[in-house]
Design a protein around this nucleic acid. Structure first.
Lengths: 229, 229
DNA sequence: CCAAAAGTGTTCCATCTACACCCATGT
DNA sequence: ACATGGGTGTAGATGGAACACTTTTGG
């Protein structure tokens, strides 16, 4: 199948690893899995798997995520290629890392029955295999950069969310507190949130109004490029 | 060598492709090469080559650049992994794209004798093989983002450069004109340029003072993160 | 009535933008 | 002397940061 000029080159195992971020309302979390194969069997790891010869790398990332967690149709973005010779102790494996954002509650059932997967608070992560800790560091950095200019953070929240919840999310991502008046003004001034009449009443006596993200209004603005926080 | 769990997975040809940006004082350029192998032999291409099993992907990128252009020790940064099944018409090849910044004049000798490589104005690029045009688009975007917060643009200029030259560079990268008073104020206020007493006299009667980039002063500031333009 | 979280405006300061004239010099 | 590109300052607008009190309601 391959033509002659390609024949004499090395072929390499290609993997994908997914950093899956979740948000529990207070802290950012990452989903880890107990590794089922040697080497390092039994240690914590990101969701990983190998890329097949006849599938796109992006497709492989989605497939691996689905196989390991049951999750499908979630936000995924390529992060970085990790290609050091010795990154995997058992052989040459180049890994393309992806990161995903999901709403923990909406997917908690799929995850429950499943696959030794567990959420860890980002500040209390276990030791991970290979270079997976480095992947998490880079993913956190990328998430911070991305969320400042794109409305991807909403993927971490339920469809209906309150301003305090949204602010908690940004505070968790930036790891620093925000002024609620400035935050509300800035985020509402973008005009991409729709206020509902319904209130969330669990977390306070007074209750906080729900909002939903208006994808259409955002798309209209998207062209000129915008600032979030 | 590989342990049993890794044996049954596909191995894939892994390539690197480099987008090399240069600046001639007026326009941004990219270095292209006439492809020497089939398929698509004779068409214009980015600098590419295969990753060996026993070399880091980053190392492969440097090696390929060196082999194809004679250039070494230049700014290089991983861009993106292109992994669609059909991106290469002759077989499954996943490519890790890198971009580089060089000062055209400083390397013109190495390039001259060499390798059918040629500079193209970014606005007059030839048709490129495979997905290489997409790589260039993404590289331009990344360059714009990166240059706004990191002093990598200096890699495109001679060691000594004038403010008008620097401004021309930013205008070329952003594809839009800048006000020279505002530009000078902002860039000088960062305190990372050292003014020389010498002037550049080719491009004007009056002459423009040379500056050099002060890497130490920049490193000191780097922590807090800074804005360029 | 009290505790706990939601909601809401204003002032100040820093930064960005727009804008025009004089300077130095080679021909 | 004049043409060419280099160098400089200011005023107005904009956006971000700091800051405190009132509202609601369940217990």
């Amino acid at each position: 199948m391959d033509i002659i000029e390609y024949r004499n080159h090395d072929r390499i195992l290609l993997a994908v690893d997914c950093i899956i971020f979740g948000f529990d309302g207070r802290k950012l979390q990452a989903l880890c899995i107990k590794r089922g194969i040697d080497p390092e069997k039994g240690r914590w790891s990101l969701m990983g798997g190998f890329v097949d010869c006849n599938e796109d790398v992006d497709t492989a990332a989605s497939r691996v995520l689905k196989q390991r967690t049951g999750l499908a149709d979630i936000y995924m973005e390529q992060l970085y290629c990790f290609g050091d010779v010795r990154r995997d102790s058992a052989g040459r494996v180049v890994s393309i890392a992806y990161f995903s954002l999901i709403n923990i509650e909406a997917y908690s059932e799929q995850l429950q029955d499943n696959h030794e997967a567990r959420w860890f608070d980002l500040e209390k992560m276990p030791s991970l295999i290979f270079d997976h800790e480095q992947m998490v560091v880079i993913a956190k950095k990328r998430l911070r950069e991305k969320v400042a200019t794109h409305p991807i953070g909403f993927a971490l929240l339920p469809e209906k969310f309150t301003l305090p919840q949204l602010q908690n999310l940004y505070e968790a991502i930036y790891e620093s507190p925000l002024d609620k008046r400035n935050f509300a003004r800035k985020i509402l001034s973008l005009g991409i949130l729709n206020k509902l009449t319904e209130k969330e009443k669990q977390s306070s006596r007074k209750g906080a109004f729900y909002y939903i993200f208006d994808k259409d209004k955002y798309s209209a603005l998207e062209q000129e490029g915008l600032k979030f926080t």
